[in-house]
Amino acid sequence: MKISLGPLQYFWKKSEVLNFYQAAAGWPVDVFYLGETVCSKRRELRLRDWLALAETLADQGHEVVLSSLALIEAESDLATLQHLVDNKKFKVEANDLSAVQLCHEHQIPFIAGPTLNIYNHEALALLQRCGLIRLVLSVDQGAQQLEALQRQVRLAAQPFPELEVLVWGRIPLAYSARCFTARARNLAKDDCGLCCLEYPDGLLVETREGQSFLCINGIQVQSAACCDLGPELNELVELGVDYLRITPQRQDTDLVVRRFAEALSTRTPPARHGDCNGYWHGGAGMAQINTLKL
C-alpha cells in the first residue's frame, strides 16, 4: 500500500506551491498528483511549470501524475487538456470524460479521477477498454460499494485496476460554473481579481448557528469537515486498496503524511484526528461513525 498526495485544490502563489512540493519531496509520499483541477483562471503555475515540477519530483524517484481540470467549459480549457495529454512522459488523471476521450483517442492509459462517476463494474470494464489503469473511488462511495464492485469484478472475471481512496482531507462536494469566492466578494467571475489567492485554505461557510459546514474554493464547494479514514486502515487493506490519497492543506500536511506512513509500516490504524467518515460507512458524508473497537 502506498501514499499519494492528491492535487492541490487551492490557489497559492507560485513560490508557495514550489516551496510546498520541495518540502513534500522529503516526506514519505509515493505518488504526486500535480496540476490545476479547479479553475482555469488559476495560472500562477502554467502547464510548463507543472511539467518542470513533475520532472524534478520524478528525478527524485517519485511517481508523478498530471491531474486534469474537473470542469471543462471553454475551448481554451480543451486546448490545455490536449497539451496535458500530449506530455508524452507522465500519466494523466482524467477528471472529466473529455480527458478520457482525449487519452483514448491517443491511446494513452489514464487514471480515473474521483469525479468520473464510476459506480459499477460494467462502467469500470468499459473504461478499462478505453485505457483506465487506476481507479480513484468517487468521494461518496464506501466500503459496501467497493466490496460489491470487487465481488462483481471477480464474478465477471474482469481484471481489477489499481485502486485509490481519499483517506484524508476536505471532501470536494460540488463544482459549478459560478465562482463562489468571487460571489462572496461581490465580484463578477470575469473580474475576480484572482481573489482565491487570499483564501489559501478556502473560505469557510457556517450555518446561521455558527456551525462549520462548507468551504468555498472558487467554483468548487468542499466540506468544512476533514474526512479521515485512518481508523479504517485495516478495512482499506482488506479491500485491496493500493493507494491512500491525502489532500494537501496549507498546514500540517507533513504530519498527516507521516502519520499514515507510520500506520502503514506498523500496521496499526492511527487514532482519529479528522472529523468525518460517513461516506465510507454508507451514511451521510458529514457523519462521524466510531469504528474503532477498543
Binding site: A70, L71, T115, N117, V139, D140, I171, L173, A174, Y175, S176, A177, R178, V221, S223, Y279, A284, G285, M286
Partner: peptide, 13 residues
C-alpha cells in the same frame, strides 16, 4: 447551479 451528476451536497448532509 452545480454541474449535474457531480453534486454531493445532498448526500453529504
Amino acid at each position: 447551479i452545480m454541474v449535474e451528476g457531480r453534486c454531493h451536497l445532498s448526500s453529504y448532509v
